[in-house]
Amino acid sequence: MADAAFDPLASARPGASGRVAGARAMWREANAIQKAAFVVAVLLLAAAALAPLIAPHDPVAQTLIARLRPPVGFERFKEGHLLGTDELGRDVLSRVLWGLRLTLALAFAGAIIGLLLGGVLGLLSGMAGGVTDDLVMGAVDAQIAIPFTLVALLILAVFGSSLQVMVIVLGLYGWEQYARIVRGEVRKLMRMPFVEAAVAAGASRPRIAFRHLLPNIVSPLVVQFTLSLSNIVLQESTLSFLGMGVQPPTATLGSMVGIGRDYMPTAPWIVIFPALAILLLTFAVQILGDWLRDRADVRLRSR
């Protein structure tokens, strides 16, 4: 029992060999679904990263004579367009690959901005209390009260919908969730004896924040991160659908679903493939998130 329990600690020790051993142990202990999710995530990341190399066509090049052609295996299939073409004769496969690339970048950038913003504000709010807490929580309430789409549309209308503005808008989406979670956890932890023990030992506030509070709120943060990643993908598609997102002809998964909706009865493949990509992406992220959360918890690790 004892030896088995200590094995995972190899990853906690410094040194490259320890880390490799830890990763190996992690893979060995994973179940089939976690392994599948990992493989899917790697494939999606590779597809997104290599999109310029592996996409068979220019994602925005139109071939109007080959409009609305179905994927391989169907009647009227056109050679070279494996997943068919859309209403303007653009190659769906190429657009999915490029769209995946942009959507992934937007979602990760947005989720990380939200995590940092909300995390820092929540930490501040929970540790400081008093007026700081009131102000931050007031901002959180305001953000919840005002429909985000409205705010996003306003910002995009004023600043134009460039990629940078889009990243910032999506970063603002969901920060209040992080802030609330972090604040709640921090307030709970601040009352724990081990935090009091650190204060009694003479620890400074940053030390308490980074050594005692943050490691203990990793789990809810990871869960929120995976949720917000999926939400951001959907939010981006909403904005694209309203014509305020990334401007056509640039492909994102969301905008492809939004536009393809009109052709659902006659050419469902325009919607199905980007939607499938979104599905796989969110699925993989959620499973990996749960996995990481469990691994991050030393109490669960040794079982």
Binding site: L9, A12, M192, P193, F194, E196, A197, A198, A200, A201, G202, A203, S204, R211, H212, P215, N216, V298, R299
Partner: peptide
Amino acid sequence: LLHARRDAQMVFQDPYASLNPRLP
């Protein structure tokens, strides 16, 4: 005060909650 706390340390009631579970 932070420096002075070196001279006096504290031991708490609940040994389960007074150690940070994430640290070795």
